[in-house]
Computed example of a mutant assay.
Amino acid sequence: MIRNATAADLDAVAALHAEARATYYRGHLPEEEYAGAEETARSRAGWAAAIERGAVLVAERDGAVAGIAAHRTAEGVADLTQLHVAPAHWRHGVGTALHTACADAWRAAGLRTARLEVFEHNARARAFYAARGWRPDPERPRSGDHLVLRLTLGTETE
């Protein structure tokens, strides 16, 4: 089930985010940059604000948070700011369900373009996005150690 996150989900959302980030940053960044106390507090505050804005979706499986997605719109473009699936739920359709829910919401809002940034060493995520039509952003292909990807949103009938 995909639903909007509530304040009651904050602990689970923050924990899933920390677990997911550790899987792709470990070995590439110093641990304090993705799991240190300061970064954990900053991340939690960001998730709390996003949940309050209504910008976070939760995928629930067996009553637990299995995946999360956060998005926003700026200048007529959707930004997928976060999409994480608990490793125990990888390859079970959770990420696809979250991605589809986001894309459907963007289309319903009349948006035709979405973008995201993905850590260049996160091969799993890069393959996931490529399979769903995301391509390098021709205007800005990189942002530091992240690749910038763009998705052209057609209508549901296209």
Rank of each mutant, 00 (worst) to 15 (best):
L29R: 11
A131Y: 02
T155F: 06
S43N: 08
G46W: 02
A20S: 15
T157S: 12
R3V: 00
A105Q: 02
R42W: 05
A130F: 05
A103R: 14
R42A: 14
W90Y: 14
L149P: 08
R26H: 09
P87K: 05
H17T: 10
F119K: 07
T23A: 05
W90H: 14
E19I: 13
T23K: 04
L153N: 11
R132A: 08
G27C: 05
H99P: 04
I2P: 00
E120D: 13
G76S: 07
S43G: 13
A20F: 04
T157Y: 06
A108G: 06
L16D: 11
G67M: 04
A74G: 13
A48E: 15
M1L: 10
V56E: 01
E60P: 03
A130H: 07
Y24E: 05
Y24S: 05
F119M: 08
L80C: 10
E156R: 11
R72E: 15
R135G: 07
R124Y: 07
A55P: 00
W90R: 06
E117A: 15
A37N: 03
L57A: 01
I51P: 00
G93R: 03
A64N: 05
N4F: 01
A101N: 01
A131V: 01
R140Y: 09
E31Y: 01
A8G: 15
H146V: 11
E33S: 09
A55C: 03
E39V: 14
A125Q: 03
V94P: 07
P30S: 05
T100D: 15
C102N: 07
R142F: 12
A131C: 12
G133L: 10
G133W: 11
Y34F: 15
G110A: 11
M1Q: 09
T40F: 07
V94R: 05
Y25S: 04
I2D: 00
R124L: 08
L98M: 04
A108D: 14
R126H: 05
V77T: 15
P141M: 11
D145R: 14
L57V: 00
